[in-house]
Simulated assay, not measured.
Amino acid sequence: MQYGFVIPIGDIHTIAELAQLGEEAGWDGMFYWDGIYIESMPEMYDPWVVMAAMAMRTQRVRLGAIITPLSRRRPWKVAREATTLDHLSHGRLILPVGLGALDDGGFGKVGEATDRKERAELLDESLDIITGLWSERSFTYKGKHYQVDGLTYRPTPVQQPRIPIWVVGAWKREKSMARALRYDGLLPNNMNGPMTPEEMRVMRDYIAERRTSPFDIIWEGETPGNDMERASSIVRPWAEAGATWWLESRWSTQNIDEVRARIQQGPPRIS
């Protein structure tokens, strides 16, 4: 089990500081998030700039943004941004992707696609293009939404065969799960209600039947940093059910001191 922390708030200088504190406290990954306009959030920043700042303050932890909605980003730009950040961080980037949440005004308020099917099509084509452009070969693509005519991207990412891609997968929707299984990790979204460890075991077995190479299952939640025995007891059932990453995510928190304190208390490692 590896342990990451999603930083939900803070100005950009504070976020970079918190990433450094997280590395010092023993977290394995420090993550930000991709938002354009969410009324309930007091402040937000471009995730690629934020992650660059985080990379400059850290040396070991993995970095990523939970999540990048590829339907509203040009895939050839994302491919270049991700490669640049992978080099800046010396191969520590993870690319978590999905459809995104429509409560972000960066969809409907600016004319981006909101239809689920269309966003899924854009996600699939974007992933094809991003991974194709990372190959260092001349890449051509003709899709329903995007076309690429003979682009060759250099340099390639530091990480090979590619930067790890985590994909949000709707359990038990076959098409959504098949998309995630083509890549490197799954952020599960249970369409039948709250996920339980028992349900995750079923999902883990489903994945094992279809994947033989290493594959991450990412789960998120909150644990009390002042009671590590209790924290471990929260995480343990998910680890036993197949989760390989625990993301400490405190989306309702608006107190930066609370966020800093929880980071410094360290990950809820299973004793």
Results as ranks from 00 to 15, higher is better:
M1S: 13
F5P: 04
I7Y: 10
D11R: 02
D11G: 07
T14Q: 10
L18T: 10
L18I: 11
A19H: 10
Q20H: 14
L21R: 11
L21D: 14
L21F: 04
G22L: 13
E23K: 02
E24A: 12
G26H: 00
W27A: 01
G29A: 15
G29Y: 13
D34F: 03
Y37T: 04
Y45E: 04
D46K: 00
D46G: 15
P47T: 03
M51F: 04
M51C: 12
R57P: 06
R60G: 05
R60P: 05
R62C: 11
R62Y: 13
L63H: 05
I66F: 12
I66M: 13
P69Y: 03
R72M: 02
P75I: 01
W76M: 00
K77R: 11
K77T: 06
R80Y: 06
L85W: 03
D86A: 08
G91P: 14
L93S: 12
L93M: 15
P96L: 11
V97T: 05
G98D: 04
A101L: 11
D104G: 08
K109G: 06
V110E: 02
V110K: 07
A113F: 14
R116H: 01
R116C: 08
K117H: 11
K117I: 05
L123Q: 05
E125N: 09
I129F: 13
T131N: 01
L133A: 05
S135A: 09
S135Y: 02
R137W: 06
S138Q: 13
F139R: 07
T140M: 14
Y141K: 06
Y146E: 04
D149K: 04
G150F: 07
R154C: 05
R154M: 09
R154L: 11
P155E: 07
T156W: 09
Q159T: 08
Q159P: 06
R162W: 15
I163Y: 02
I163Q: 03
P164M: 00
P164F: 01
P164I: 14
W166P: 06
W166N: 03
A170S: 05
R173A: 13
K175P: 01
S176T: 05
R179G: 03
N189I: 15
N190T: 03
N190D: 15
M191T: 14
N192E: 15
E198M: 13
M200L: 15
R204S: 13
R211M: 11
T212P: 09
S213I: 02
P214L: 06
I217R: 03
I217N: 07
I218A: 03
W219F: 15
E220D: 10
T223D: 08
N226H: 13
M228V: 07
E229F: 10
A231Q: 09
S233M: 08
S233H: 09
I234L: 11
I234Y: 01
W238S: 00
G242M: 08
G242E: 00
A243Y: 08
W245G: 07
R250S: 11
T253G: 00
Q254C: 12
Q254E: 14
N255E: 13
I256T: 10
E258R: 15
E258V: 12
E258H: 10
R260I: 04
R262D: 15
Q264Y: 12
P268W: 15
I270E: 00
